[in-house]
Nucleic acid binder design. Structure first.
Lengths: 244, 244
DNA sequence: CCAATAGTGTCTGTTAGACAATATACA
DNA sequence: TGTATATTGTCTAACAGACACTATTGG
């Protein structure tokens, strides 16, 4: 069959990478996981901090989510509890090597699992975030500063009307602990009573028999009924940005 | 420089396509724009209905959004008023030719612009949607049935707490017309007073001096202050699916 | 005047915010 | 018992739903 009758597959294909903005809370402040780019010749942005990412491997990856989990595990040793696609960005100028697309993901890592990343020595590190969602005091490779801010914005916005931030806590947890991570993610204080009423009415928590002694009156312990199932509240918290 | 010191670009790259689920309302019912796949030898799913889509063209496209707009225009003659990314899906089994990724987009097309697509004869056609968000009476190529449902679900969910559906109306429009498209998108009736209060309090509408005579009492005409700016309401309409 | 459509008044229920009050632990 | 933390009670405001009511047009 002559080649000219073949279907018009494109002559050139874009590079496709997956980048993961893994978020956690350390010392009461949000952090993002960054990796140092290799110094090898030909590598773009040698030595710069960047989101952990990698190319889609058509031999190894069954799906894009599988790809993201593999990349995160291989580069940082972390298995994310929560992982979601945020957006795709593409263009000619992103990567000097070729027209490239990144599939940006956001991941939430409970404080407990934070140390998994420590083993990778100096090449992987948690960096604190500013209130605007950008890493403090580091210039990131490529457009990764923007990407981090975009992922943080997505998580923040969704935290206004879902129980997303619980994924930053190891189980079991207390309601004050839960309120605390919400306040850190949303960067504002929340009324105690309103928060408790809202959360308990949501019925996504399982009440345990035990309690945790924090020094004074012990707080009751809870667990999520289904860690994969996001609970969507009927009303958003107020004071939120109302931005699209 | 020896090849082995070059940065590890992947040996094989996935196919990357953009698919667009363009939605409109015809005769009071939601429709999706479908295109017939070419019959040429080697083409997958010859003759089947599918979402209009195409490969990312690294020479022609400056960005993914530009790519989606180009593809939609070239394949259907339509310039969408509203276009947003919905999700990326990838896998080995999607396209028989290779591991492929689709960047799924949703587009909203005002009723007025619907005829632009008619010019393309039999290869492009508006198909009515079932209540479950799938096209009625057609089997779609590949996983496009699922993609249509996913795009519709996204638009529906966002319509619970934003003014998104107005993008299905040509300007100017009346409040009863606006309520009507909301009811069609959400597939349920909405209380008149609640809807008007909500919308007018949102202050995203510009009140015109004129009115439209529909036969009986004329309705006041409105226009969006900014068609690109999505208005986010503080509370969602009730009765919505609280699903993630 | 009648029919039909546009628009308003008013009541209720829900739930977030404010903040005071109570409960339970340890020292 | 005192103090710190957890948990609850109560009031208010905002706003969606229900639904009856009024307003404005054409015939």
């Amino acid at each position: 069959m002559p080649r000219s009758t073949k279907p018009p597959l494109p002559a050139r294909r874009p590079l496709v990478t997956v980048d993961i903005a893994a978020l956690t809370i350390i010392d009461g402040r949000p952090h993002v996981l960054l990796a140092r780019r290799p110094d090898a010749p030909g590598e773009p942005w040698p030595g710069a901090w960047a989101l952990p990412g990698g190319f889609v491997d058509v031999d190894a990856d069954a799906s894009l989510e599988a790809c993201a989990r593999r990349v995160l595990r291989e580069r940082t040793g972390i298995d994310a509890q929560w992982l979601e696609q945020v957006a795709a960005h593409g263009g000619r100028e992103r990567d000097p090597r070729d027209w490239s697309i990144t599939l940006l993901h956001a991941a939430l890592v409970p404080v407990d699992d934070t140390r998994q990343a420590g083993g990778q020595a100096d090449h992987v590190r948690w960096h604190p975030l500013r209130r605007n969602g950008r890493p403090k005091g580091v210039k990131l490779a490529c457009d990764h500063g923007r990407l981090v801010a975009e992922a943080v914005a997505r998580i923040r916005r969704k935290s206004e009307y879902t129980d997303l931030p619980v994924r930053l806590l190891p189980e079991p947890f207390t309601l004050p602990e839960m309120q605390n991570v919400f306040e850190i993610v949303l960067d504002r204080s929340i009324d105690k009573k309103a928060f408790r009423t809202r959360v308990l009415a949501g019925e996504m928590l399982e009440e345990l028999d035990s309690a945790r002694a924090t020094g004074k009156r012990p707080a009751r312990l809870y667990r999520l009924r289904d860690r994969r199932q996001l609970h969507v509240f009927r009303r958003a918290l107020e004071g939120g940005d109302a931005a699209a």
